[in-house]
Amino acid sequence: MNIFRLTGDLSHLAAIIILLLKIWKTRSCAGISGKSQILFALVFTTRYLDLFSSFISLYNTVMKVIYIMCAYATVYLIYGKFKATYDGNHDTFRVEFLLIPVVLLAVLINHAFAPMEILWTFSIYLESVAILPQLFMISKTGEAETITTHYLFFLGLYRTLYLFNWIWRFYFEGFFDLIAVVAGLVQTILYCDFFYLYITKVLKGKKLSLPA
């Protein structure tokens, strides 16, 4: 455990909780892509199946359980409790365009051709692109609530910090996971445009709105 890994995990946790609180406090999931949230729930479910097969640490187990529970709670709030506020008309990204290539890639490029490994690899690849329905929704409506941008910032920051964590582990522990690093790079790059808007607009007190 190094500082990049820990702050990355906490940033991820912050993102998840910001989103849950935003929906809960405003009693609305307007502007939130339910599709992205379903994909994240799928990411956690397929990645954390090892909760049943191996124990790594109390920290590891607790964080995994929190992530999974929060992911399903978010999906429930969007498609259940606050369904009336869900903006399905703008959440029109075709997820099959992500899922099909990700499944194929996970079957073709993995550490071992075994069910658990393929599911883990699938989750890594899927996570890297799971935010696309959300970014697509923002580009379609041309704006995002400020709290939604904070959510996206922490979510993007998390994988960026993981990149530093992997550099650290490569140098100090001799660890290197090509699949995670490449997917993490892709994931971080997808946030770059958003980071730019966040820094130049949101941090200066302006709402995130895109030119028409």
Partner: peptide, 10 residues
């Protein structure tokens, strides 16, 4: 290097 899976990460 093909690398190895970091099983302890989230």
């Amino acid at each position: 290097p093909n690398g190895k899976k970091m099983k302890d990460e989230l």
